[in-house]
Design a protein around this nucleic acid. Structure first.
Lengths: 158, 158
DNA sequence: GGACATCGTCAACCCGGTTTACTATTTCGA
DNA sequence: TCGAAATAGTAAACCGGGTTGACGATGTCC
């Protein structure tokens, strides 16, 4: 009964985690498209989360996402194009431009939250609420407090 | 006791799944770098898996990864540069070039498998073997047979 | 007032993906 | 048998998101 003695190959675990993530994100965006947000992309959701309800500067967004301010600026450009964010001059600091979510951006975010809640309830119905809660607890235990960080998106590309 | 009544917000689940995936992949590549493979990247591992021990054509690799043959060709270029794969003319078909893993590529792959096994055993030690097995079973149930597919890598970029 | 830090932006580049287009080769059927 | 159709590989142009380096404009602090 060595700790490594297990009939399951280790390479499946990451694939299953990724597949679970992908399944949820795919369903989110399919439903988001149905609800009038066909242009939303995963990276946009993370960026809007980083902007937050109170707005933020491009540099702050970059820091929160763990990318350069230039990269954040490009993503914000994109968000502006599809109408989810806007830039306004910061009256208190001539260097800063405050990035704010538009009502449409807020709508996408609140819909996303509702859809995620519904998807989780589907999982709870299929697996059992306690089993799903235990799955989350286990992942939280293995990933630590960084498990809920938002700066994990861009990392795959590296 | 409605199915949607749960105190946990749904948005945490995908973040935890992604964080778990990222944690495993990060540890894999840190260990791989320590073992003499500092240039390996996640996408390369998936591509080498798609090439397989027997080799494959670029088009086959593309189909297995769910990307265009051109994209597969670029990734194979990269694998060739870092010495993990090579192209040889297929004597039986003048159009095809067989992509084969080099010994170094095979070494990276076998080391990866061993590292993944070890990482899984760490998880099993921390969580309990039965709890980890149940986590995998749950994910398998929610993702279906596609849960172990390799074609999930490039999708985030979209 | 001047040195230094920060903000936003531009430019050039990398990487991995796409589509379109093309040649070379093989396969298959009339 | 021979010509049409399918397939393999490659190139070119583009996109999106990432990087670094540089820059002017503005704030901050001594």
């Amino acid at each position: 009964m060595s700790a490594t003695a297990d009939d399951r190959p280790g390479f499946e675990l990451p694939l299953l985690l990724l597949a679970g993530f992908r399944a949820l994100i795919d369903e989110l965006h399919a439903e988001l498209a149905r609800q009038g947000h066909p242009h939303a992309r995963p990276v946009h959701g993370f960026a809007m989360q980083a902007i937050g309800p109170g707005g933020a500067s491009a540099s702050e967004v970059g820091r929160r996402l763990g990318v350069s301010k230039q990269a954040a600026g490009k993503t914000i450009d994109r968000l502006e194009e599809i109408g989810y964010a806007e830039r306004v001059d910061d009256p208190a600091d001539g260097r800063r431009k405050l990035v704010r979510l538009t009502p449409r951006g807020v709508d996408a975010l609140t819909r996303s939250a509702a859809i995620f809640d519904r998807l989780r309830s589907h999982w709870a119905a299929a697996l059992g609420a306690d089993r799903l809660a235990d799955l989350e607890d286990a992942l939280r235990a293995m990933t630590g407090p960084t498990g809920l960080a938002v700066d994990t998106v861009s990392w795959l590309a590296t």
